[in-house]
Design a protein around this nucleic acid. Structure first.
Lengths: 223, 223, 223, 223
DNA sequence: CATGAATGAGTATTCATTCAT
DNA sequence: TATGAATGAATACTCATTCAT
């Protein structure tokens, strides 16, 4: 008799154990993939890192590819959670934007491996899959569109299609984390967030030049 | 007189042919690397594409890696040339900025393979080399710093360290080409350039909100 | 108590099987290397010979080179054992020498592949390693020096530095196995051993000539 | 008749030039093959060493293999010449033997590359060719047989088939040059020659032991 | 369930040889 | 005749995946 195998009353939470193990594998995988790249990381190395057999890793993830994609997905999930958490603390929409920018930069500042994962995913799975990053971004963008619609309606943000704002912010942040990571930029994260927000909110031109530029742009559009 | 020792026995080398062949290899390589990734592209495939033997490719590039890096370098060189060409046609500094943004986006719009190359380089050669993109960027940035110093001095751009401007523009453009390429964004390139310039120059806020934000930002800084 | 942590999850390793497999691989490798040379022997061929996958061979030996050197080492070990076994059966030192000579020649007569291995090792690993043969020889020579010292002391062998004897024997045997193998000499092994021992023990000269030669040599030395 | 093919009076000695060039190539090849082994020596390297094109080497030797074998053959030729030269200076047969032993050892002492060539030839061309060394040896051995027949007839060497003597000497010398070269033996060449001759001529046993051994050997043979 | 032994497809690189010039 | 550009056959080694224990 294989016996109580964890006693009467219960045999509880094998599921929990399984979930925890899954997380552990994903974390080890993230670390190693980010450090060595997809091709140069052996599944064996992931198993070794955890002190388990290689077969065990394969019980949790069908293929090396699935393991990698799950790791990328996890990273994006956590980014989303981190951003949501601070956004929800703010009432004012502009403050929400500011909070989101801070949280976004802070997340990748604290988890540079995640930037690596974004790159690696593209390099390794170009034609097999829509990038995880954009999947997550698109799932989120509707909410920001609404927010901007409100801001335009209340006259706090200038008139323009709201997509212009979300895309610009999105691109700027995306480019920033890459540059931070690849070029090894050492600007303190807080200052960087301020700089970005200031430029996004106010632009670069001086007051007199703004007027001139607006007029010129207007002419161009109506011509 | 045996003539200026100018009768090199044997088949003479044709430098021009060599240079042309080199370019051809690089172009085929760019195409294939971009299409399939570094690891999945055989050197054999590059040779086949050109109808030459594999050994010939190796006569021109010591290793597959060298071939790849040369392709990436060529792409960046051409970007630089394309940008310089249009910038030099403009006299007004703000027009120069606008021209550069257009040219940058137009280049990657016309050569999406180059975006791929940037990604692949990072994924494959993370620790072996400073990314080609940033090497070229850094070689260029001084010129833009000066330009912005002039704009600040003449009061056309608001007071701020010029690095803030160059970095913001740089990051925004970098993020934009990636998003365009990865997420398959279909916004017409010209419109995109306008959107980006408008936001960079004017910011997002409405006039009344600008005042409020400036005041708040000022308070924060002095507190 | 979960029992002496002696329940290693998973398939248990079978050390004996591993050792046997190792031997088998070494034997196949010896055969093939000897037949075709180092360069012309594929690791795949070794695997095929055993009906296993190539990867399996690499589980046991890190590189083709390591496989080869292990094969050479095994051959020398066995030579040593074969020689020791017969030497230990003899009490008289001269008989021991005779037994060693017989065993040495018999070993290479029975295992001509081993002669090949000696050659191949030198040809392939000249600058990477002290030849296995000489490593083993040097590990053994002390014992023979002692034996000869005893023989000189008891007046059974003429006065001379004992190294002269060991080196001469060693060189003669070494040259003999090479010549046997390379030139395809067909002299029966037993006769060959007798011929060698007789010459080593008695020399080639006739009695009268010995006297003359000794005198001449003496003159030369004292002059 | 294809015309004077050699012109009127003069344009002399192309043949001589060709022969000289051939020698040069062979010398460079010997050096490089000995240093790096057959497989690791590129024909290109031989060409570079001489400052000529690779095609030129191929004009003189059909294949890399032919080049190697010619180099080995040249080495053996020179050995033969060196030995003959000193032998012919001696009148007494025993002195001739001594002179040959000296010359043989001196040759390989001065040209260690030749030892390498012997090895390499065996390793690379085992089944394609009778070793050059033995070809040359066999071409020579008849002469030594005669010499020994004379020595036996005149009672200067003990009664025995003359092959016993030539083979023993041959094997001992062969083994000696290998050991010298492989094990890096540093015994001065002159001393080594004396040691070898003394043992060959006188044997190792003391006078009393000789008698005993001879008797025992006799018993064994007649039993 | 966990393990790790076994497998074999997949690939960059070298270099002897040829032959157009 | 000499050259060296072009060629492509040949080959060790890795590592994702499977499956017997």
């Amino acid at each position: 008799m294989p016996a109580a195998r964890k006693c009467p009353r219960g045999r509880p939470r094998d599921d929990e154990l399984i979930a925890r193990r899954r997380e552990e594998i994903l974390e080890a995988a993230t670390r190693l993939f980010a450090a060595d790249g997809f091709a140069r990381t052996d599944v064996q190395a992931v198993a070794d890192e955890l002190g388990v057999g290689k077969g065990t890793v394969y019980r949790y993830f069908e293929t090396k590819e699935a393991l990698f994609l799950a790791a990328a997905d996890q990273a994006m999930h956590r980014l989303r959670e981190a951003v949501h958490a601070v956004v929800d603390e703010q009432a004012d929409p502009l403050e929400q934007i500011a909070a989101a920018v801070h949280a976004y930069l802070a997340y990748f500042d604290a988890h540079p491996e995640c930037v690596e994962l974004l790159i690696l995913e593209r390099a390794a799975f170009k034609d097999r899959k829509k990038p995880t990053y954009f999947e997550h971004r698109d799932a989120n963008v509707g909410r920001w569109h609404e927010l901007f619609r409100g801001l335009v309606a209340t006259g706090r943000v200038r008139e323009a299609p709201v997509e212009e704002f979300t895309e610009t912010i999105s691109d700027l942040l995306y480019g920033t984390i890459f540059t931070n990571h690849f070029a090894g930029r050492r600007e303190p994260m807080e200052l960087q967030a301020h700089r970005i927000l200031k430029t996004l909110f106010l632009g670069m031109l001086s007051e007199p030049e703004r007027a001139r530029y607006s007029r010129a742009a207007g002419r161009r559009c109506t011509s």
